[in-house]
Amino acid sequence: MTATVAKFETRHGRTEKAGGPTVRAAIDAFLDSPKAKGNPNTLRAYTGVLAA
């Protein structure tokens, strides 16, 4: 197995807000999705980790 290295650009001096949902909104949307709700064990596990 070979590791892959990704280069991330750093953006210093940026003051504008990034677009998109907040982390809380993204977590809530994921936990409310059919994929997460389809299995009670999955929903319980993710809820416990993401709610912290």
Rank of each mutant, 00 (worst) to 15 (best):
residue 16 E to I: 02
residue 16 E to Q: 12
residue 43 L to I: 00
residue 28 D to E: 10
residue 32 D to H: 03
residue 43 L to T: 00
residue 25 A to P: 13
residue 6 A to Q: 13
residue 30 F to A: 12
residue 8 F to L: 05
residue 41 N to C: 00
residue 8 F to I: 11
residue 15 T to K: 09
residue 30 F to N: 11
residue 40 P to Y: 00
residue 47 T to G: 09
residue 23 V to T: 15
residue 35 K to P: 01
residue 39 N to F: 00
residue 22 T to S: 15
residue 47 T to W: 02
residue 25 A to R: 15
residue 31 L to F: 02
residue 47 T to Q: 07
residue 28 D to N: 13
residue 14 R to F: 00
residue 16 E to S: 10
residue 50 L to S: 04
residue 12 H to K: 06
residue 31 L to R: 02
residue 33 S to V: 07
residue 26 A to F: 14
residue 5 V to T: 14
residue 50 L to E: 02
residue 44 R to H: 03
residue 32 D to E: 13
residue 5 V to D: 06
residue 20 G to V: 03
residue 40 P to S: 09
residue 18 A to Q: 06
residue 15 T to N: 11
residue 2 T to F: 05
residue 30 F to H: 15
residue 34 P to D: 13
residue 31 L to K: 01
residue 5 V to Q: 13
residue 38 G to C: 08
residue 29 A to V: 12
residue 50 L to F: 09
residue 9 E to C: 02
residue 26 A to Y: 08
residue 12 H to V: 04
residue 41 N to Y: 09
residue 38 G to K: 06
residue 41 N to A: 09
residue 43 L to K: 03
residue 14 R to I: 07
residue 19 G to W: 08
residue 5 V to W: 11
residue 44 R to V: 00
residue 37 K to Y: 10
residue 42 T to A: 10
residue 15 T to Y: 01
residue 5 V to M: 15
residue 51 A to E: 13
residue 28 D to Y: 05
residue 42 T to H: 11
residue 31 L to Y: 01
residue 17 K to E: 12
residue 52 A to D: 05
residue 24 R to W: 08
residue 40 P to V: 04
residue 26 A to C: 15
residue 45 A to P: 01
residue 21 P to H: 07
residue 3 A to C: 05
residue 43 L to N: 00
residue 36 A to W: 01
residue 31 L to I: 04
residue 29 A to F: 13
